[in-house]
């Protein structure tokens, strides 16, 4: 439906974003350069980690990738399709084949919408017929470890971990090539965090979805990811195989970051 196949590589080239803030009539506007030209590739079936501390621009990047925010420059392509870039029409968020999971499962579900409707909403926007919607919602809920009967329940009836499963189902029901998780396990208890990490690993193995995992937690990257990109102050400072980056960091910031992580 989105025209993408699981075999497409996501290529981001020189993505830039500057936020301007007005300081009133008589002062010049101030500028924050959130992304200063970020380029990377994510290959099919891979779990790609984006690490950085608060304010480094990682969430801005996430919002640009899924289409919640517009970049000032650069381009993004999925296989042969240009999602945005100079001279190309910008593909809408629904049709990108990249779906997002947010940090706080309590804030990202509408409390007045039953789980089935929440998960089916994207399909409805994409004009999928009702019968097919129900079928796909049931399938996807089973995929994330919930039951098709859960579709009739409301968010308050679920724990934090289960809500995050619902959010993941809502993203997966669109059959995206890429799942983009922005700090998706940070708000969860450690015991539940491990359940969700294992589920993401299983999903990649079973349905071949690629995962872009944005986090500040190096130990989660070590557990989950294949390759990792370290972002500092809007720039990529280090990039490569997880083992290489974490065991032999070259950049001074990456070294400091890794040294600061308490180890068990």
């Amino acid at each position: 439906m989105t025209g993408t196949t699981p075999n497409d590589t996501l290529v981001a080239t020189d993505i830039r974003k500057t936020f301007r803030r007005s300081n009133g009539l008589f002062s010049p506007a101030s500028e924050t350069r959130a992304l200063k030209g970020v380029s990377f590739e994510v290959t099919p079936g891979e779990i790609f980690g984006i690490v950085g501390e608060s304010g480094c621009g990682k969430s801005t990047l996430a919002r640009i990738l899924v289409g919640l925010e517009e970049a000032d420059g650069g381009s993004l392509a999925l296989g042969a399709r240009t999602l945005f870039g100079p001279g190309a029409p910008t593909v809408s968020a629904v049709n990108r084949g990249i779906q997002m999971v947010f940090q706080d499962p309590y804030a990202s579900l509408n409390p007045r919408m039953c789980v089935g409707d929440a998960v089916a909403e994207g399909l409805a926007i994409a004009n999928v017929p009702r019968a097919e919607r129900e079928e796909r919602v049931a399938e996807t809920l089973s995929l994330v470890g919930l039951t098709p009967q859960d579709a009739r329940k409301y968010p308050f009836q679920f724990s934090g971990g289960q809500r995050q499963r619902i959010c993941i189902a809502r993203a997966l029901v669109m059959e995206p090539a890429f799942l983009l998780a922005d700090e998706a396990v940070s708000a969860l208890d450690v015991s539940v965090q491990m359940q969700i990490l294992n589920m993401l690993l299983d999903l990649r193995d079973r349905i071949g979805v690629s995962i872009i995992f944005i986090t500040h937690d190096i130990s989660v990257v070590d557990y989950l990811c294949d390759r990792v990109m370290v972002v500092y102050d809007g720039e990529v400072v280090e990039f490569g195989e997880k083992t290489a980056v974490l065991d032999h960091p070259q950049n001074a910031y990456t070294q400091r970051l890794i040294q600061s992580v308490p180890r068990l």
């Binding site: 450690v190 015991s191 965090q193 130990s219 070590d222 557990y223 989950l224 083992t243 068990l264």
Partner: peptide
């Protein structure tokens, strides 16, 4: 609980 701490 120790088994929940992520590592390589």
């Amino acid at each position: 609980l120790l088994n929940c701490v992520p590592r390589r």
